[in-house]
Design a protein around this nucleic acid. Sequence first.
DNA 1: TGCCAGGGGGCTC
DNA 2: GAGCCCCATGGC
Length: 272
Amino acid sequence: MMIAKIINKNTINIYDITQFDLDAIMHSGQVFRYFKTKNGYDIVSGVEYASLYREDNKIIIICSDAEYFFNYFDLHRDYNQIKYSFNKIKDLQNVISLSGGIRILNADFFEIVLSFIISANNNIKRFTKTLNLLAEKYGDKLDNGLFSFPTLKQLSKTTEEDFKIIGCGYRSPYLVKAVEQLSNINLSNIAALSNNDLSKELCKISGVGPKVSACIMLFSKIFHRLDIAPIDTWLNKVLCDINEPNLLLNNKYAGVLQQYLFYYYQYLSKTL
DNA sequence: TGCCAGGGGGCTC
DNA sequence: GAGCCCCATGGC
């Protein structure tokens, strides 16, 4: 079955909803600035925006740029093949059947770096609030009334005090330094590096350690390394209960599996 | 090496 | 409602 199709420059139709679970994607911990609407979600990625809703057996995306969001939601990729490759791992059937509609997004590099620095030792509710304040204060108001994620240029004059006011806490000095470092980084140079070398480079950014660098490598469109699994405190607890954690971690699609597990254990544990 | 640094929200008890 | 922890990292 065709997964999805660009209908026109502002519209995408998704036909295979077994590969696109709207609620699961929104709650999978990759996108934070999503807003529940009457029948779906509004989201912002960088300066682009989209409304998503379900209509019969389709998901409709009405957006600022269909090409951008086709790539953002990784719609070129067949996730059934990825799920099939997990079949050899035992005891994953429940996880896959509940999380199998999640996709790894192709987010904006700058937005991902800042978002995950702010996420450090923070809870999702709280840092989402901070990210929205950041957008409202330094981003642009878009046609749908939401605010874009600020660009590097828009944050270039932001001070430690500015970041503290919106709740960044002790991460504020890291953010000031990170913005400065990011204005000098050559992305196309480091995009060719191996996982290990790339992680080392990313960890040079202030506020970025191994965990945040793994999130950047997995979620940002310039890298999109699906074999990287960021291990957060949640997944660490889960891995302690699993017999063979290395089967999960040394996998070509470890990042996808990690997202499935994150959603399964964190989101569903709250709702079941 | 081990500890500490915002603060607020959600969770457990 | 008190006490704990949080999608960690940098610096001492």
